[in-house]
Structure formats: C-alpha cells, structure tokens
Nucleic acid binder design. Structure first.
Lengths: 153, 153
DNA sequence: CTCCAACGTTGGTTCAACCAACTTTTTCGG
DNA sequence: CCGAAAAAGTTGGTTGAACCAACGTTGGAG
C-alpha cells in the first residue's frame, strides 16, 4: 500500500481556509456541546446568561442582537431558562412591548459553572498552541469577525 | 443607557476562541454557500469532485473518509452528481461490494469553475489580512486540525 | 465453512440558524 | 392629533449539515 492511512483529505481542501475553519469550528462546537450538556445547558442558554451577567437586565430583542441569536430562538431559550429558575422575565413598565429579563442568583451560579467547563474546553481545543500562538489566533479571528460583523464586536 | 453602543457581544464571548471560531465559520460557510449555489453545487459535491480529481477514482467509503462525509451523505451527493453527469458510478469488478466512482470531463470542468468561485470567497473572507497573516492563520488552523483529527490531515 | 468486517443504501434524528406572519405597543411624519 | 411605520414578543414553520441505526450483500481471515 502506497498510503498506509489512505484517508487523507486532498490538498485542495486542506489549503482552503474556509474549509479548515468550518472543520475546526465543527470540532470546537462538538467539544463545547459536550461541556454544555454536561453542565445542563445549551449554547444559547450560556450566551444569554453571560450577556445578562455582563450587561445587566435587557429586553429579549437586545439580548438577541447582542449575542447574534434570532428573536424566536431567544424566546425558546428563555422559556427554558425561566423554567429552570435561571432568569426572570417580566413586562417592562416603561415600554409594554418589551420584557425585562434578569438573572437570578441560581442563574449566576449556573453561568459560572458553565463558564468553567467552557474554559476547560478552550484548553483542550488550543492544546497544541503556546500562549503567543493562542493570542495570535484570537487576534486574527477577532480581526476577521470585526471586518465581517461590524458593530457587533 | 448603560450601553451606549447597545448591541455589542459581551467580553466573555468575544474572548472565547471557540465562540469566535464558530461565529466566523458560520460566516465563511455562508459565503461559500453563495458561491456553491451560484455554481450549481453544494459543499459535499465540491468536496467529492475535488477528491476525485486529485486522488483519482475511488470507492464511496474511501471518498467519505477522505473528505469527512458520512457514507449515507456520500450516497445522496453522488446520486445528484451522477444525475448531472459529473461523475460515473459503476460496480467494482474486483470487489463487488464497492462502487468505483470516476469524474467525467464535465465533472472536471465543474470542479474548476466551482474552485474559482471558492477562491474568490477566500479572498473576500481574508480581505483584512495580509499575506503573512493569511499564512499564519492557515498554519494555526492546520496545526489545530491535525491535532484533533489525526490521520485525516 | 463460519464468523466478522466492510460496503452501499435507506430512513431516519438532531441541532443551529433562519424566515414569515401575526398581535400588541410605541414612535414618528404630516 | 392621527395614521402609518417600526419594534417587540410569539408561534410555527424550513433549511443545511452532521450523524446514527439497521439491513442485505460481499470479502476475507481463522
């Protein structure tokens, strides 16, 4: 056999950044998903909680805009967060279209716990990179994202 | 007005590599999908075609392994490629479990066309990066992928 | 010869992302 | 001031990518 492990991806794919990106992101998402479900949450739940903890109470639309989640998906995720007692949702007295969403102490606890699990995931994900390379990678990704999603980053 | 620029993602998300990765990959996938559908193909179709062009005729299972596509998804994509006359699928006389998949001239043509469209996508995706940074990014992604998907890269 | 592995195929499931439509409420232009 | 436009929350979908289980056929190893 010319190739003992004959299952390598072709050069044309291996050198295409968007292919590398989507492949790696898929792997990262898989790792993150493990951590999330182990912590009893989902991506959306964590993103929303973090946004609330960091930015304080907000309306659902604002939350969605801040973490890039569709309004309808925000509804579903918040329903679950409310059911678990991690956030509270009440009508905004100042604008009766809106709901004001607030984190509960249990929600902060959950956020911190999930955050730690997620940190371990980053460690595993970036294992082969030293500190400088990690910073460089984050910098490159940030610059690209900033270019393609101006205003949100 | 705690937030003057109201829709920025929270720091905690912005500094999480896996979040940056999945976000950017999503954007890259979106760009790529535009190019693919404009060229009348899908990701899977292009990946399979490229793999065939570069590695020559192969069985469906080998193709799937080479480009990281599930066997069942290979079947569906090949059905469409056969229908469009881009590949030929015939039983392997040497091993009657397998099919031998071969690119047609039309398939090569389609591959090249789609490849060019995809190159333009890479250009748009990496627009804010100079040549050195692009190489660095590709290098970092490759190292990470190699670490997490040994044998396939 | 038997048992197990590999292959192709069918028919699903899951998750993230998105979109359309509707109701209520606010805002804004004339 | 009033009517149109916009924003908010909600419901109910659709799509694409990835994956998984099962089955019949075939090949190969013991």
């Amino acid at each position: 056999m010319t190739t003992p492990a004959g299952d390598r991806a072709p050069e044309r794919l291996r050198t295409t950044p968007s292919w590398l990106l989507t492949r790696l992101a898929d792997h990262a998402a898989h790792l993150a998903r493990e951590a999330f479900t182990a912590a009893g949450a989902g991506r959306y739940h964590y993103a929303l909680l973090v946004t609330l903890v960091e930015g304080g109470p907000a309306s659902q639309a604002t939350l969605g805009r801040r973490c890039g989640i569709d309004r309808s998906d925000v509804v579903a995720a918040l329903n679950e967060l409310v059911a678990r007692g991690h956030v509270e949702r009440r009508p905004d007295p100042a604008d009766r279209r809106r709901n004001v969403v607030t984190v509960t102490p249990a929600g902060r606890e959950q956020t911190e716990r999930t955050g730690k699990a997620l940190d371990e995931v980053q460690e595993r994900l970036l294992a082969p990179l030293d500190a400088a390379d990690r910073r460089h990678l984050t910098d490159l990704l940030t610059r690209l994202l900033r270019h393609h999603a101006p205003g949100r980053l």
